[in-house]
């Protein structure tokens, strides 16, 4: 435990660059970074295209089995061919991207909320609460989460998309909690927190209205990078058959057809487009996240 005995003449390091206009600076840095900017544009296009197209498309029509069009190669009718049930790959790709993105965003938000809550409380109060929370978090960070998620997905009766997201959330909030906790721990030592206490502000208000705004840029960066990770985890689980049910198209499910060696070897149109799409999506989100991270670092250097 650090003993805050007497501050004497020492002046704590202050991040002068941490200005209130953080969002606009982040955005400016993002636009200045060419790779990240292109990635961001691409992401917007994909999201707009996929969500737009999925309004017009009929999911039931796409997942309907057509025995007269099994394993069709790409053609004018089926832009990317069909799968073993004669279902249009292109349509599944659109719906699947929408589903993967939606669940990625949902899980990122849920884990973000839990992680921020736990991390903030743990770091702000410190002491016993912090000790218990962090031992718990450390433990789950060590465990092979993928395996445990698979086991829970199997164990849960009445498995659905909701329970799938909840199980993912239950095991994926620890990373962000640990990060927020360490930042909150630094932040609460600053005098503005002490000042708020002497001014009669409640701990609750200090945590959420004084400390939290100062963590916003780190939260944005982490959530962006987590989004890419969560899309990867979801598609990985769907690939193994523990994600979306097969009736709900997902990018992972499309790739999972490649577990059949014949499909992998001979019918690339089924699995390759989805693979490339996931890769490019994750690469773009990562690019944006890394650029945001650099932007926050640069501001710290300038300070």
């Amino acid at each position: 435990m650090r003993i805050d005995k007497d501050s004497g003449t020492q002046i704590p390091d202050v991040d002068l660059g941490k200005s209130p206009s953080g969002f606009s600076i982040l955005l400016r840095e993002l636009i200045r970074d060419k790779v990240a900017f292109v990635s961001l544009l691409f992401l917007f296009l994909i999201i707009a295209g996929v969500f737009g197209a999925s309004i017009i498309m009929d999911q039931n029509d796409i997942v309907k089995v057509d025995l007269f069009a099994l394993y069709e190669p790409p053609s004018a009718t089926y832009w990317l061919g069909t799968d073993y049930g004669g279902r249009d790959i292109f349509g599944q790709l659109i719906i699947g991207t929408r589903n993967s993105l939606a669940i990625g965003i949902l899980v990122t938000l849920l884990t973000g909320i839990i992680g921020i809550l736990v991390g903030l409380i743990s770091g702000y109060y410190g002491g016993t609460i912090d000790n218990i929370f962090m031992r718990f978090v450390d433990f789950f960070m060590v465990l092979p989460i993928l395996m445990i998620v698979i086991a829970f997905v199997t164990a849960v009766p009445g498995y659905s998309i909701v329970s799938f997201s909840l199980i993912m959330t239950a095991f994926l909030w620890m990373g962000i909690a640990r990060l927020i906790r360490s930042k909150a721990l630094q932040e609460k030592e600053l005098d503005y927190v002490k000042a708020s206490k002497t001014l009669g502000t409640s701990n609750f208000k200090i945590m959420f209205f004084q400390v939290l705004p100062n963590l916003s840029s780190i939260i944005i960066v982490t959530m962006t990078l987590n989004l890419a990770g969560n899309i990867g985890i979801e598609s990985g689980l769907s690939f193994l058959g523990f994600g979306f049910p097969e009736s709900t198209p997902s990018l992972g499910t499309l790739i999972s057809y490649a577990r059949n060696p014949q499909t992998l070897e001979l019918r690339w149109w089924i699995w390759l487009p989805a693979s490339i799409l996931i890769f490019v999506l994750m690469l773009s989100i990562n690019n944006v996240g890394q650029a945001l991270k650099r932007a926050t670092d640069a501001r710290q250097r300038r300070g």
Binding site: I255, A258, L264, I278, F279, L283
Partner: peptide, 18 residues
């Protein structure tokens, strides 16, 4: 490292196998 960081293991493995 950028590409490797973004590429999911299972997709990369499939491509390698392919």
């Amino acid at each position: 490292t950028y590409v490797g960081f973004a590429a999911p293991l299972f997709i990369f493995a499939l491509v390698m196998l392919f």
